Amino acid sequence: MIQELTEGYGHIFEKALINDIIQVGTFKEIPAGHKMMEIGEFVKSMPLLISGAIKVLREDQDGDELLLYYLEKGDTCSMTMACCMGQHRSQIRAIAEVDSKLIMVPIAKMEEWTSKYKSWRNFIFESYHNRINELLSTIDSIAFYQMDERLIQYLKEKARVNKENIIKNTHQEIAYDLHTSRVVISRLLKKLEQMGRIELHRNYLEIIDL
């Protein structure tokens, strides 16, 4: 944990803070597809992502999901922090997109470190800034983009996060993430295939030219 924490956050945090995190943090390895946080749960610690990627989703009153953003190496989740500080129940669902490693930091240390370490305070503010920008991008996508544009944007981001052009999600899973129907997604994917931009296979699709 020490080496991975130093490699991931040593350029952000001072040595004393790194040592404090080592003292109280809990190292976890999360397999792809594992649900790390559920809507309605109380949040007892916040994650520092060492490697991998976590997708963060919201759910409407009908149980349909919407992908908000991804957390990657060097990130933490501002929504988790807000729930921690206010002792509120989680309003998001977090699922490992790929095999991931992270360190869970107890909420009791968050306020202490905010006043004690300038690097931690800057990290928290930067995280809020980044997540707000990502949420605004999601809102813009829903408000101003057609579904075919949103799908292309989604596939590009998925490929970037997974570091490969193979997307192993089903049409239904993609529909869940984009808060639409499987029929719509299947139709648009078929159209992209006819344009030569993707290739559809039985259990996956391959990006050719997006």
Rank of each mutant, 00 (worst) to 15 (best):
P106W: 04
D62S: 13
V43E: 02
Y117I: 03
A82R: 07
M104I: 03
Y117H: 13
G86S: 15
A82N: 06
I92N: 02
E65P: 00
L135M: 11
M104L: 15
G86T: 15
P106Q: 10
E112M: 11
Y117K: 02
R89F: 04
E112K: 10
M79E: 09
S100N: 09
L136V: 08
R131P: 01
Y69C: 04
T138C: 12
V105R: 00
D140F: 14
M104V: 02
I95S: 10
Y69Q: 08
G86I: 04
R131A: 03
C84H: 03
F125N: 08
A82Q: 05
M46L: 14
R58C: 10
K116C: 10
G86W: 03
N122W: 14
R121W: 08
M81N: 06
E126C: 08
L67F: 14
R131M: 06
A108E: 15
Y128E: 01
D64P: 00
M79T: 09
M81Q: 06
D64L: 08
S141Q: 10
S141I: 07
K55F: 01
I107N: 12
L67R: 07
E97K: 06
M104C: 10
Q61W: 09
S78I: 00
D99L: 02
S127G: 14
I54N: 06
P106V: 09
V98Y: 08
N130P: 12
H88Y: 09
A53S: 15
S90I: 01
I50P: 03
E112Q: 12
K118A: 12
I95D: 11
L68V: 06
M81L: 15
D62Y: 11
H129P: 07
T114S: 05
K109R: 12
T80P: 03
V56T: 15
P106A: 08
Y69K: 05
C77F: 02
D64V: 05
H129W: 08
V56C: 10
E65G: 06
S119W: 05
L135S: 00
M81E: 05
A108D: 13
F123M: 09
G86A: 13
N130D: 15
G52N: 08
Y70V: 04
I54P: 12
P106M: 09
M110H: 07
Q87K: 13
V105I: 15
K73S: 13
A94C: 12
K55I: 00
R131Y: 01
W113R: 04
E59W: 04
S115L: 14
G74H: 07
W120H: 04
K118H: 11
I107Y: 12
